[in-house]
């Protein structure tokens, strides 16, 4: 393994870059679905648009809120959300941290940054009691936009997605189409779905089916 793909931190933990820059092509969990199910284009009639943001860096942090918050603040420049079911982002919206449970957060960064993020966090955390897991290969992120996006969500999840109950900056783990996913609202007109890769094909086909009446389109 080349030098930049593995590292040993001061605390002696071995880390491996799960996606080193090599000649081996990498594909999103939905690559097969695009090929097999297809991807209807976006038209004038489309009231919902799906866009996959594939190959992002997903990192799960577990541990005490105070130490993790300090470390994340130091490395990313913004803190962990302290309240349940909330989402913090940097001004560009490219990096985010979401509350998953009282001792667990999901940090999403642009693809390729997750390895250095993990190294920096481990350095900042020292010998605190924590766990960092790179789950980038296990999930993918879909964006949902358009005037009918809320309607489509209402058909799929029992969670209340009315703007009054689901303000910008909220994010929950909930039931979605008999499966489960992380549903979040980073902006007024944009929703994000964080899917497990094993559910990705099923949920993609569910969304296309549910979105048919809104002439759903896949933006790529």
């Amino acid at each position: 393994m080349s030098e930049h793909t593995s590292a040993t931190t001061a605390t002696g933990i071995n880390m491996y870059d799960v996606r080193p820059t090599t000649e081996v092509p990498a594909e999103s969990p939905l690559a097969w679905s695009y090929h097999h199910t297809g991807h209807p284009g976006v038209s004038q009639r489309s009231r919902v648009v799906i866009r996959e943001r594939a190959m992002l860096g997903h990192v799960v942090l577990r541990g005490g809120a105070i130490v993790l918050d300090e470390a994340v603040r130091q490395v990313l420049g913004f803190g962990l959300p302290a309240r349940p079911n909330t989402l913090n982002q940097d001004p560009s919206g490219e990096r985010s941290a979401q509350w998953l449970s009282p001792d667990e957060w999901l940090v999403i960064v642009p693809g390729g940054e997750e390895f250095s993020l993990e190294a920096k966090l481990r350095e900042a955390l020292g010998d605190a009691h924590y766990a960092i897991v790179n789950v980038s290969g296990g999930q993918t992120l879909l964006e949902l936009e358009g005037e009918a996006a809320t309607e489509l969500l209402m058909k799929s999840t029992p969670y209340d997605v009315h703007p009054a109950g689901f303000p910008v900056g909220k994010g929950v783990t909930t039931v979605f189409a008999k499966s489960n996913l992380i549903l979040r609202r980073p902006a007024e007109d944009r929703w994000e779905l964080v899917l497990r890769r094993s559910f990705a094909d099923y949920l993609y086909r569910w969304l296309l089916d549910a979105g048919q009446e809104y002439a759903i389109g896949v933006d790529d």
């Binding site: 349940p84 079911n85 449970s101 029992p158 969670y159 929950v172 909930t174």
Partner: peptide
């Protein structure tokens, strides 16, 4: 009590 909100039974 951890999420601090009411959720549907099917989540539990």
């Amino acid at each position: 009590p951890y999420c601090e909100e009411l959720r549907e039974e099917e989540e539990f």
